[in-house]
Every structure is written in structure tokens, then in C-alpha cells.
Simulated scan of single mutants.
Amino acid sequence: MIRCLAAALGLALACSAWAQAEPGWEAARKAIIADYAKQQPGDKVQEVTGPDKREAILIAVRYYGSALVQRADGSRARDKVLVEYRLVGSRWELERVRVYESRELADLKPPAAQEAQKILLAAWQGAKCEAFDGLAVALDGEPRYQLETGADRANAKRWFVYNVKVSARGNGRFRLSEDGAAYVNATQNMLLWNPAQKSWSVEARQLRCTGFTKKN
């Protein structure tokens, strides 16, 4: 029995030695471009970068990369793509090309950080959080772009989503606050672009005065 297993293992190793060399990243890159041309002929691949990661076992190899794609409607996206090859007999065959994550790229710039902070602060000051005084807004990181889905691109809404920290001082007027205590509200706010007025606005429903917690 042991001899049979050893012989089988030796045969498998010999077959793998006779197999053609596994495809490299350049083959995977070409496979990505070819797959877009076949599956999304109206889109244009502007750039393929990688590999970000490589995974391999005896009979399979997988590459991860990214593609910068211009859609037929003029929008652009950064897609994360994997390419997998399988060893069939002595030949490597393309098993699949799959987009596993896609991020829409902005077609307009966000306001400068100082301007965004000013707009958000004005919105919070107008939210009438009567249990708190001395509101201040701090931006936490870079904004994330979002495009409304289900609408034609020309009329679709565009936002930038900000992680913000709103600090305030309790005034003791309501149960929500302790007089003189420091509070913070870590939340997300969206700045909506109005193309007609060429201005940014904040949706009032996002300004929740109940989100403040007392600092330790």
C-alpha cells in the first residue's frame, strides 16, 4: 500500500514537472483586458496594475490586480480583479476572470477641507441641538465619493461622505446633557452637490442631536 502511494505521488510530481510553466502576471494582465473587451465591449480599460497578491497550489494559480475602467457613459471606476488558472493535464487553462470589488471614481472634486468643515459646522449650528453649546466640527480622514444609482448619469445626484466628529459642551437644559460636560458625536455626513446652484448642502435628516455621548 505504501509503495502504491509513493508511486502515485511520484507520478503526480513527474506530471507536474512535465507541465508547461505556469502563467505569469503578464498573461493575467492580458486576460483581464480580453475579458473586458468580451463582457463589456463599450468600456475601455485605461490601466491594469498588479499583481497585488499571488496565490498558488500545485494545480492552480491566482493573481489579484486592479483595472482603471472608463465606462461607456463616461464614468470611471477602479475595479479589483482576480484571474485564476487551473492545471488540466499538462496544460494551464484560464479558469475565470472576476471583478470582486468596484469603486466609482469622482467626476468632480470635493470642496477644500476648510470649506467642507465650514459648511458642516453651519449645518450643525442650524440643527438646533438645544442641549449642547459651543459646537465644533472636525473632519476624520478623506471623503468618499458616491453617485446615485438607478438614474441617468447627467441627472444623478453626487455626494461626498465625510466621517466627522462633532464636539460640544452640555448645558444641562435636558436629560441629554450634563451642564459643563464635554460631549462628542462621531458620525457621517454627506455633502450633496447642486449643479444648478453650484453649491453644497447637508441633508437635515443626517444631523441627529441624539448621537452625542459624554467624553470619559
Rank of each mutant, 00 (worst) to 15 (best):
G10D: 00
A12C: 00
L13C: 02
C15F: 05
A21Y: 06
A21N: 12
A21F: 09
P23R: 09
A27K: 13
A28F: 10
K30E: 11
I32C: 00
A34E: 05
D35F: 01
D35N: 04
K38R: 14
Q40R: 10
Q40P: 01
Q40C: 06
Q40G: 04
Q40Y: 02
P41H: 06
D43S: 07
G50A: 14
P51E: 10
D52N: 14
K53E: 15
K53V: 13
A56C: 02
I59T: 14
I59L: 11
A60L: 00
A60D: 01
V61E: 04
Y63E: 00
Y64N: 06
G65M: 00
L68M: 06
V69E: 03
Q70I: 04
G74R: 03
A77W: 12
A77R: 13
R78Q: 13
K80N: 05
V81G: 00
V81P: 01
L82Q: 07
V83N: 03
E84M: 13
R86F: 15
R86H: 15
R86I: 15
L87C: 04
L87S: 03
R91S: 15
E93Q: 13
E95H: 12
E95W: 04
V97T: 06
V97G: 05
V99K: 01
R103P: 01
A106R: 02
A106E: 01
A106N: 03
A116T: 01
K118H: 13
L121F: 11
Q125K: 08
G126I: 03
G126L: 03
A136P: 08
A136C: 09
E142S: 06
R144Y: 12
T149L: 10
G150V: 10
A154H: 11
N155W: 09
